[in-house]
Amino acid sequence: MDITIYHNTRCGTSRTTLALIRNTGVEPDVIEYLHNPPTRAELESIIEKAGISVREAVRQKETLFKELGLDDPAVSDARLLDAMIEYPILINRPFVLTPKGARLCRPAELVLDILPLPQKGALNKEDGTPLIDALGQKVVQA
Rank of each mutant, 00 (worst) to 15 (best):
residue 70 L to M: 09
residue 65 F to M: 01
residue 65 F to C: 00
residue 107 P to H: 09
residue 33 Y to I: 05
residue 133 D to L: 07
residue 88 P to F: 00
residue 63 T to G: 13
residue 129 T to R: 14
residue 131 L to W: 04
residue 59 R to E: 01
residue 142 A to F: 08
residue 82 D to N: 10
residue 137 Q to G: 10
residue 58 V to H: 11
residue 19 A to P: 06
residue 102 A to H: 02
residue 81 L to T: 08
residue 12 G to M: 10
residue 51 G to H: 09
residue 102 A to N: 11
residue 26 V to E: 13
residue 4 T to D: 05
residue 112 L to E: 09
residue 118 P to S: 10
residue 115 L to I: 10
residue 9 T to Q: 14
residue 78 A to R: 14
residue 96 V to P: 02
residue 46 I to N: 04
residue 101 G to I: 09
residue 17 T to S: 12
residue 111 V to D: 06
residue 11 C to R: 02
residue 139 V to Y: 08
residue 14 S to Q: 12
residue 98 T to I: 13
residue 76 S to K: 00
residue 31 I to L: 08
residue 45 S to G: 13
residue 63 T to L: 07
residue 19 A to C: 12
residue 139 V to W: 02
residue 54 V to Q: 07
residue 3 I to D: 14
residue 12 G to I: 11
residue 126 E to R: 05
residue 12 G to N: 13
residue 2 D to R: 10
residue 139 V to H: 01
residue 104 L to D: 01
residue 92 N to F: 04
residue 109 E to L: 08
residue 131 L to I: 06
residue 137 Q to A: 08
residue 28 P to W: 09
residue 6 Y to C: 05
residue 64 L to S: 06
residue 107 P to F: 09
residue 31 I to P: 03
residue 79 R to Q: 15
residue 138 K to E: 14
residue 31 I to K: 15
residue 64 L to V: 02
residue 30 V to C: 05
residue 63 T to P: 15
residue 44 E to P: 12
residue 49 K to H: 14
residue 97 L to D: 13
residue 20 L to M: 15
residue 53 S to E: 06
residue 123 L to P: 04
residue 57 A to K: 03
residue 55 R to V: 01
residue 33 Y to G: 02
residue 131 L to F: 04
residue 73 P to N: 07
residue 130 P to G: 04
residue 42 E to F: 07
residue 52 I to G: 08
residue 119 Q to R: 08
residue 18 L to G: 15
residue 58 V to Q: 06
residue 85 I to T: 09
residue 102 A to G: 14
residue 104 L to F: 03
residue 104 L to W: 00
residue 129 T to M: 13
residue 29 D to S: 11
residue 142 A to M: 11
residue 116 P to R: 04
residue 16 T to N: 15
residue 66 K to V: 12
residue 26 V to F: 05
residue 55 R to A: 00
residue 139 V to N: 00
residue 4 T to F: 03
residue 104 L to S: 01
residue 77 D to G: 13
residue 7 H to D: 01
residue 91 I to W: 07
residue 124 N to L: 03
residue 52 I to M: 05
residue 10 R to E: 09
residue 49 K to A: 12
residue 18 L to S: 14
residue 82 D to G: 10
residue 40 R to C: 03
residue 43 L to A: 05
residue 38 P to V: 03
residue 100 K to W: 12
residue 119 Q to N: 03
residue 50 A to C: 07
residue 28 P to M: 08
residue 107 P to V: 07
residue 56 E to S: 15
residue 50 A to P: 00
residue 100 K to V: 02
residue 5 I to M: 09
residue 41 A to Y: 01
residue 72 D to S: 03
residue 73 P to I: 00
residue 90 L to V: 06
residue 61 K to P: 10
residue 100 K to G: 09
residue 56 E to L: 13
residue 65 F to D: 00
residue 50 A to H: 00
residue 37 P to D: 01
residue 3 I to L: 11
residue 116 P to K: 05
residue 104 L to I: 02
residue 37 P to I: 03
residue 34 L to V: 10
residue 61 K to Y: 04
residue 4 T to Q: 13
residue 26 V to N: 12
residue 46 I to K: 07
residue 3 I to P: 14
residue 103 R to K: 15
residue 6 Y to W: 15
residue 16 T to R: 02
residue 64 L to D: 15
residue 142 A to E: 11
residue 33 Y to N: 05
residue 29 D to G: 06
residue 5 I to N: 01
residue 25 G to D: 07
residue 1 M to V: 13
residue 61 K to W: 11
residue 69 G to D: 09
residue 43 L to E: 14
residue 117 L to Q: 14
residue 121 G to M: 03
residue 15 R to Y: 00
residue 120 K to P: 05
residue 125 K to E: 12
residue 53 S to A: 11
